[in-house]
Design a protein around this nucleic acid. Structure first.
Length: 617
RNA sequence: GGUUCGGUAGUUCAGUUUGGUUAGAACGCCGGCCUGUCACGCCGGAGGUCGCGGGUUCAAGUCCCGUCCGAACCGCCA
């Protein structure tokens, strides 16, 4: 390690007093004024006898000028300034000789009379400068290790600032709607249903554990039973599952619950909230109400429970069309109750054989897991179509009918998958997204369009083949559709839930339901989920008990705050909208978290680890 | 748990296909010149555990095996 810098003497007694302006503030109206600015040295340009520097803070950049004839002392210091030194300057605002119209402060500059070096910076592990052109694509783990430097970059600060505005917009709106912000416990009881819990051992109760909340679900219901009427909270939630670009182990929800709620009341409230958020964070007016689509329709038309409505390419069920084709693959699909689903990819009718083979091998077989891909190419020059299946195997008349069913024109490509329902629809939904990405139908950035959608009428249960039992699609406190109550006994898989998801541009940004508020319905629900009476009592007895004493109907929703910020900022990773995020393996490289603890701590907590030394460093 | 991509100077990368002289470039850093730059410019210089371990070979950044770290995705995420 080199010796600490002696490049510049640091100021010990600060003489300049408080700053008069931020680095983003000065305009030509201030020309002639004496000002005090403080900030980080961004870039500097030494012309010999004249030094320009950009001074940076959260608010912007201001060019400061050191001229030998104005102050020889200040100039001598300026010659030695380096990036990220922290300085205070006094000086006079002047109109620039050469104006910079790309900066808000670009019409003026400050001639420095005096400079105090508040702190120096050693050579940096990566570039921090505000000039995007200078910023290299620094690797994620280095950025996370020096997160305080990463966060100094204006691009990341903008995300954090937008996140702040989103908090404020949310609190303002919820307050005007009579919602009460209530904090719920972080240390709570473990509920094994759902995701894995993060556990916290109890010192005073040997062998017992708290869990960090996956969501404050039961608490917010109890607040409704308590008569708070309307609750919200911007709250951290924890799920110990593997990470993705849009998934962190700790994340933030806007959690909401209302007494006497109906779906309509929830939709209206959330639409108002979204409109406020978009207005206050981006100045964008979004249209309300949002369109709605039943879950079954979303699967049928888009192969997804979170359809991206920014483009078409809807799924076409061509099963009827292909009945009696004599093609063995299709026939056996139909015999076992399956379907053949097609999409029309515009303008890809001349895709080469190599690219289609690659699509089949790498995407369809490997990623989507479908057994094969069928395609029909319609050349742009209007010449005859080519099918991936020979005429002797699948007669041309059937191919022609598929072309008609999908509305394909010259220059289009028709893709088909065959398989069991509803799986084949979901596979085609994945292929639809892939093709949309490939053909540039999905706009990047954060300029919209903003395609909100309520997905409604979710199935109450999902059957798990492996476990041979039903699981709650949403969660076990979700109310069934009253008219589907009779189905619970005979055909639970067909029962619909009073649950809804809010989807934006193909991302699930929230989900909720009208809850069960009657004890016998809740008990019935637990029974169908294979949770026995004793177990239900042990795990959720407090809630069932609460239902005895006048529990009002209620319902709510939880919105993923991090994902909202991600969409509003156009960030490609959740890590870019969280101040101190975790890596894909749930570590935090700056502070080296998680880490071992000493034996005394473990003993106090009555914990013995079974990890042998070297299992994990 | 699995698949794929990546790891070379402080940083971002090239070099790996086809093993062979002293491992290059840009930015940053150090020294010098330069009074209107704004990613200033010009001249010079320093800087490398080619992630780590093992193997093949006369010879490995390059080929093979293992391993660690990061990322994207699958499983998982009521």
């Amino acid at each position: 390690m080199p010796e600490p810098t002696t490049r510049l003497a640091l100021t010990t007694t600060q003489q300049h007093g408080p700053r008069t302006h931020t680095c983003g503030e000065l305009r030509p109206e201030s020309v002639g004024a004496d000002v005090v600015l403080k900030g980080w040295v961004d870039t500097r340009r030494n012309l010999g006898g004249l030094v320009f520097a950009d001074l940076r803070d959260r608010y912007g950049l201001t060019q400061i000028v050191f001229a030998e004839e104005v102050s020889a002392e200040a100039y001598a210091i300026a010659e030695k300034l380096r990036g990220e030194d922290v300085v205070s300057i006094t000086g006079t605002v002047r109109e620039r000789e050469n104006k910079n119209h790309t900066l808000p402060t670009g019409l003026i500059e400050v001639f420095v009379a005096d400079i105090e070096v508040l702190n120096t910076a050693e050579p940096l592990p990566f570039m921090v400068s505000a000039h995007e052109e200078r910023q290299q694509n620094t690797s994620e783990d280095l950025r996370l290790k020096y997160r305080y430097l990463d966060l100094r970059r204006p691009a990341l600060q903008q995300n954090i600032l937008l996140r702040h505005r989103l908090y404020q917009a949310t609190r303002r709106y919820m307050d005007t709607q009579d919602f009460v912000e209530v904090e719920t416990p972080i240390l709570m009881k473990s509920t094994p249903e759902g995701a894995r819990d993060y556990l916290v051992p109890s010192r005073v109760h040997p062998g017992k554990f708290y869990a960090l909340p996956q969501s404050p679900q039961t608490y917010k219901q109890l607040l409704m039973i308590a008569g708070l009427d309307r609750y919200f909270q911007i709250v951290k939630c924890f799920r110990d599952e593997d990470l993705r670009a849009d998934r962190q182990p700790e994340f933030t929800q806007i959690d909401v619950e209302m007494t006497f709620a109906t779906e309509e009341l929830i939709y209206e409230m959330v639409e108002g909230l979204m409109a406020s958020i978009w207005k206050d964070t981006r100045g964008i007016e979004i249209g309300t109400p949002f369109p709605r689509m039943p879950h079954a329709e979303a699967i049928r038309r888009f192969g997804s429970d979170k359809p991206d409505l920014r483009f078409g390419m809807e799924l076409v069920d061509v099963s009827e069309t292909l009945h009696g084709s004599g093609f063995r693959v299709f026939d056996s699909t139909f015999e076992s109750g399956g379907a053949v689903v097609a999409i029309r990819v515009e303008g890809q009718g001349d895709l080469g054989r190599g690219k289609l083979d690659k699509l089949t091998k790498q995407i369809v077989l490997k990623r989507i897991g479908a057994p094969g891909l069928f395609y029909v190419k319609l050349p742009a020059d209007g010449s005859d179509f080519t099918a991936s299946v020979k005429e002797e195997v699948l007669p041309r008349s059937f191919v022609q009918k598929v072309i008609e069913a999908t509305g394909a024109k010259a220059g289009d490509l028709v893709l088909m998958l065959a398989g069991p329902q509803p799986k084949v629809f979901e596979q085609m939904g994945t292929l639809r997204l892939h093709m949309a990405n490939e053909t540039g139908l999905i706009p990047g950035g954060n300029d919209g369009p903003w395609k909100f959608l309520w997905v409604t009428e979710f199935p109450l249960f999902e059957y798990d083949e492996e476990d041979g039992r039903f699981y709650a699609t949403h969660h076990p406190f979700t109310s069934p559709e009253p008219e589907d109550l009779p189905l619970l006994e005979n055909d639970p898989g067909a029962a619909r839930a009073r649950a809804y998801d809010l989807v934006l541009n193909g991302a699930e940004i929230g989900g909720g339901s009208i809850r069960i508020h009657q004890r016998d319905v809740q008990s019935q629900m637990f029974r169908h989920l294979g949770i026995g009476e004793a177990e239900a009592e042990e795990r959720f007895g407090f809630l069932l008990n609460a239902f005895r004493y006048g529990a009002p109907p209620h319902g709510g929703i939880a919105l993923g705050l991090d994902r909202l910020v991600m969409l509003l900022t156009g960030a490609s990773s959740l890590r870019d909208v969280i101040a101190f995020p975790k890596t894909q393996s749930a570590t935090e490289p700056m502070s080296n978290t998680p880490d071992v603890v000493n034996d005394e701590q473990l003993e106090e907590l009555h914990i013995r680890t079974v990890v042998s030394e070297g299992d994990d460093a």
